[in-house]
């Protein structure tokens, strides 16, 4: 990266690969509180070279006593932070289990929806019904449900579903929406026993395509 040595490089060219301007430049401070050493180097640049760059960009900084003393100034911090870098990292599994135990005990019931039986008081929590219908939507390739809400229709047990979706663009959206609607209606009737009369679907996001997954393989972690 050739840089004219006679003036400080513009900000946009800095940091692209973590190295600074060519050696020998009498740098103009790039940070308001930066410090220039007697030999004309920026303290920020000296520290970056000491801590952040893999290769020695400026041989002067490595050899000059002023610069080396300035770099030395960080050694106490670096030594003290060693334990933070390499110390025993607490396990995530036990933490995740504890969090999920608490979460499951505090299940958000939300509204209660009537199951389709006029003679008995049978209800299902909106969150539970939403979970099942979201999975029905998710079973349609190229679709993933986001929100799933229910609205009562009339005085009886009828319900209207309002769903938002992330959808892939490899097929016309109306086709995909139609598939999702069919899947959701079928699940509402055959898995739950909810009297869903309509399903409103809005696509709110694009789903990134992924390679098709064979049964038995789990997708890679995020």
């Amino acid at each position: 990266m050739a840089v004219d040595e006679s003036h400080a490089p513009p900000p946009e060219s800095l940091g692209a690969d973590g190295t600074g301007p060519k050696p020998g430049a009498a740098d103009v401070p790039s940070f308001a509180d930066d410090v220039v050493t007697p030999c004309g180097r920026l303290l920020s640049r000296i520290w970056e070279q000491a801590r952040d760059t893999a290769q020695a960009a400026d041989p002067h900084i490595s050899s000059c006593p002023h610069c080396r003393e300035a770099a030395e100034g960080l050694s106490a911090v670096t030594a003290a932070s060693q334990a933070l870098r390499t110390g025993d990292r607490p396990g995530l599994e036990a933490l995740a289990d504890r969090v999920m135990n608490i979460v499951r005990a505090e299940v958000r019931l939300g509204r209660l929806l009537p199951l389709a039986d006029p003679d008995r008081a049978l209800r299902i929590a909106e969150s539970a019904a939403a979970k099942v219908l979201r999975q029905a939507a998710d079973r349609v390739p190229g679709a993933r449900a986001a929100a799933c809400r229910f609205v009562p229709v009339g005085d009886g047990v009828d319900l209207r579903v309002t769903m938002t979706l992330a959808a892939a663009l490899d097929r016309p959206l109306p086709d995909r929406i139609h598939q999702v609607r069919r899947s959701v209606l079928r699940s509402a009737g055959q898995d739950l026993g909810l009297a869903v009369t309509a399903v409103d679907i809005t696509v709110v996001d694009v789903l990134e395509q992924e390679p098709p997954c064979r049964p038995g393989l789990t997708p890679g972690g995020a």
């Binding site: 969090v99 299940v107 939300g110 909106e126 972690g221």
Partner: peptide, 25 residues
């Protein structure tokens, strides 16, 4: 596990604990 954070957060806000478990991981 393949869903973006925003989508998972919407689902978790509606009570979907599995979505929240993914966010925790």
């Amino acid at each position: 596990r393949d869903l973006p954070d925003g989508l998972l957060a919407v689902r978790a806000a509606e009570g979907d604990e599995e979505a929240f478990a993914v966010l925790v991981q």
